[in-house]
């Protein structure tokens, strides 16, 4: 019974925030785009001409009804993958995205087996 109550509270909790996730966030997109003429800054943090121009381009693309991913694809075709701070999941970047989780899984298994081996002994 108690568990059901807690579960309901949790679900209500998450439901209230799922709704707000739908809106396309301009600043989030800016933060994912590297300012190509700066030293390690996103266009959100930069005032360079390049950043200003790119912000206008992003705004136009949003107004054309493009989704976040479509905007990233459009820009990476034009400027190369270097412009995206969050690398796309593709063959080349496969290891980058999966190795951390693989390590997490492997580490978990190692800990599990160390502990279980000793449970059997005792």
């Amino acid at each position: 019974m108690k568990f059901k109550i807690i579960l309901t509270i949790l679900l209500v909790n998450f439901y209230s925030c799922v709704l707000s996730d739908e809106i396309i966030n301009e600043n989030k997109i800016h933060k994912n785009l590297r300012c190509l003429v700066c030293q390690g800054q996103s266009i959100s943090d930069s005032n360079s001409d390049f950043a200003i121009t790119l912000k206008i381009v992003v705004k136009d693309l949003i107004e054309q009804g493009k989704t976040e991913d479509e905007i990233y694809n459009f820009l990476s075709e034009k400027y190369g993958d270097w412009i995206l701070y969050k690398p796309k999941l593709n063959v080349v970047n496969f290891l980058l995205w999966f190795l951390p989780y693989f390590v997490l899984l492997l580490g978990g298994l190692i800990v599990f087996f160390i502990v279980r081996k000793n449970v059997k002994k005792t």
């Binding site: 933060k31 994912n32 590297r34 996103s42 190369g80 993958d81 270097w82 412009i83 995206l84 701070y85 969050k86 690398p87 080349v92 970047n93 290891l95 980058l96 190795l99 951390p100």
Partner: peptide
């Protein structure tokens, strides 16, 4: 991995990617 991956990728495949906060 996030720090070294772009370096290796650049050296091996000459492809440049960025790995940043997102």
């Amino acid at each position: 991995l996030g720090t070294l991956y772009p370096i290796f990728l650049d050296a091996l495949l000459k492809s440049k990617i960025s790995v940043g906060p997102p």
